[in-house]
Design a protein around this nucleic acid. Structure first.
Length: 582
RNA sequence: GCACCGUUGGUCCAGUGGUAGGACAUUGGCUUCCCAAGCCAAUAGCCCGGGUUCAAUUCCCGGACGGUGCACCA
């Protein structure tokens, strides 16, 4: 842990950005509280995200429950793939993936699918030993460790539920309603900002790996055949790319435009490329240092069970690269899985430009004949006839027509089956949309923004540490101080603070201690502007306005203050608003 | 989950088998100050459980939490 990291943790705790939860009861690993500064900062980051990915892109936002019933996660694959079979060596204590050990010792390719008793038996039968120390593992319990938090829904013999491990499932599950709201038009995007939960084996490094966290996810549903991303909007955006091949070889980060990345096929999915470009602008806006930022492609073995191409946005914190966003092309994996398990429609009907006419074989079996003839099997026979016709199988000119169901052959009288080829006009088709998913870890964004904002410098020979947060992100926008608490300066300053608050600004009033100390206090929590009421204010209605990063000050009329601050927030120049002080 | 190290006012640290001290911060007063000034005062602490002991914040064991390494991270 470096000095900078320690400094940041200390600052975060002392000034109320974030701290360990439930410390009064000894604390619990992987849970954090955002304090008064941190909660506002986080909310500012979320607002900027909403503005970028929902408002400006014309997508919709929903807010789904964090608890969902078990079948959701059977469908999503999280029950199977999100849990690990652990066997712990009784001798050296090393935990191992039991299924991996079995796969290594046998021909079984997918031991994870086996029940635990079978895996335990296989370990005994094959004399599997601990890879670390050689101790035989026969007879040692294999335990399931699922990274999802389980809960019970309702009292008594309630149904099992889980805290969602990603917000995305709350969107996929509600797809059929959501597509209705999108008036059955692809493409459309659904966003969600909310909590997700993973029972991490080993939470680490402050906000970086926690058990309860906030995600901001966008699920962009597109027609894989017809929809193209508006690449021209981001074609000229330069992005630092760290490709899989560069990671394999000795290559490094290569900066190129999005257009070039697509051209050279460095990023294979155009949709992913589009979001890499769009998102870079977002990161810059919230204060991520672009010198400590890169897009890294997942290595083939690293891909999630649902993803075909995946890039992570990574930020360097304290010498380590951490994932702050995953950009995945999830294909139709999720919607197809839910379609299989759930009782709803996970497709969108796409109308053709012009209806097409196709020839289709249809059968119309006479059930008044099949029924008495085959009894209970009649329904299955009819279904099989249907299938045969659609597949172009079987000989419908024969009499009788042989139909095989469950290994038994039924002779269907030829005149009981009306078989013909019809011309059918189709206006469109049901398409399972593909999903492009930018998935942001909000807590990691906050951690990055703080880490990248922390500065130290010297003012008039005194050390100063401050957070160079973008004004839009800063928890407080302006501090108002009376130079002294006498001759009415404090009253005047309180009035001014109140007036500024009415304009919607986040304002702090402080009259404690010397003026310099008050500037430092606000510097430390990243407040970008400071206003000081002095004797001249009382006489001439002017104040000094101070900028955090430069500590420069100008004097300007009180009447101009709100406009000046609004202008500075959007990149204005302090010196255009008044004469420099000293 | 394993291993090593750590845990003392709000924060960062020092220290002790007889329950503790500093720095910074905070609050009040003096000072009336435009970049952490000075003086006075106040507030505030030994992670939890068990053991050894007349006595444990200190020693021993266990736990929780934190850091690091390994494993894990769909």
């Amino acid at each position: 842990m470096s000095e900078a990291d320690t400094d940041l943790m200390e600052l975060a705790k002392r000034r109320g950005f974030f701290f360990q939860a439930s410390e009064a009861y000894g604390g619990v690993a992987g849970f954090y509280v955002y304090g008064p500064q941190g909660a506002t900062l986080k909310s500012n980051v979320e607002d900027a995200w909403r503005d970028r990915y929902v408002t400006r892109e014309g997508h919709m936002e929903i807010d789904a429950p964090t608890v969902m019933p078990e079948p959701v996660f059977e469908a999503s694959g999280h029950l199977d793939t999100f849990d690990d079979m652990i066997v712990e060596c009784p001798s050296c204590g090393e935990p191992h993936r039991a299924d991996h050990l079995v796969e290594g010792a046998t021909d079984i390719a997918d031991a994870e699918a086996l029940p635990i008793p079978d895996v335990e038996a296989l370990i005994a039968d094959h004399d599997i030993a601990c890879p670390a120390c050689g101790e035989p593992l026969a007879g040692v319990d294999v335990t399931d460790f699922n990274l999802m938090f389980e809960t019970a829904i309702g009292p008594g013999s309630s149904q099992a539920g889980y805290l969602r491990p990603e917000t995305a499932q709350g969107i996929f599950v509600e797809f059929s309603r959501l597509k209705e709201y999108a008036r059955n038009q692809l493409p459309f995007g659904v966003a969600q900002v909310g909590r997700a939960y993973r029972n991490e084996i080993s939470p680490r490094r402050g906000l970086i790996r926690v058990r309860e966290f906030t995600q901001a996810e966008l699920e962009h549903f597109v027609d894989p055949e017809a929809d193209e991303p508006p690449l021209e909007r981001v074609a000229d955006v330069e992005v630092p790319l760290y490709s899989a091949s560069a990671q394999d070889g000795d290559g490094g980060i290569e900066t190129m435009t999005v257009g070039e990345a697509v051209e050279r096929n460095v990023v294979t999915s155009d949709w992913v490329a589009f979001y890499l470009g769009l998102s870079k602008q977002f990161y810059e806006r919230i204060g991520v240092d672009m010198d400590r930022f890169r897009y890294r492609q997942h290595l083939p073995g690293e891909l999630a069970h649902y993803a075909s191409d995946c890039w992570d946005a990574e930020a360097e914190i304290d010498g380590n690269w951490i994932e702050i966003t995953g950009f995945a092309y999830r294909g139709d994996y999720d919607l197809s899985k839910h379609a299989k398990y759930a009782d709803a429609d996970f497709t969108v009907f796409q109308q053709y430009d012009d209806p097409v006419t196709v020839e289709r074989a249809v059968v119309d079996p006479d059930m008044s004949v099949l029924g008495p003839e085959f009894g209970g099997a009649a329904g299955d026979v009819a279904a099989e006839l249907d299938r045969m016709a659609a597949a172009g199988e079987g000989d419908f000119d024969a009499d009788p027509i042989p139909v095989t169901v469950d290994g038994e052959t039924y002779d269907v009288p030829g005149d009981a089956v009306d078989h013909r080829v019809e011309e059918v006009t189709e206006a469109g088709e049901h398409v399972t949309p593909h999903v492009v998913e930018p998935s942001f870890g909000v807590d990691r964004l906050v951690a990055t923004v703080l880490d990248h904002a922390l500065r130290t410098d010297e003012v008039d020979g005194e050390q100063r540490s401050y957070l160079a947060l973008p004004p839009e992100m800063a928890p407080t926008t302006v501090g108002v101080f009376p130079l002294m608490t006498k001759d009415g300066m404090d009253e005047r300053a309180k009035d001014l603070a109140s007036t500024l608050r009415q304009t919607g600004l986040s304002v702090v009033y402080d009259d404690s201690g010397a003026i310099g100390r008050r500037y430092r206090r606000q510097d430390e929590v990243g407040t970008p502007y400071g206003v000081t009421v002095d004797y001249e204010t009382l006489e001439e209605d002017t104040v000094t306005l101070r900028e955090r990063d430069s500590t420069d000050q100008v004097r300007l009329p009180v009447a101009d203050l709100a406009a000046a601050i609004a202008n500075l927030r959007t990149g204005g120049d302090l010196r255009e608003w008044g004469d420099p002080v000293e």
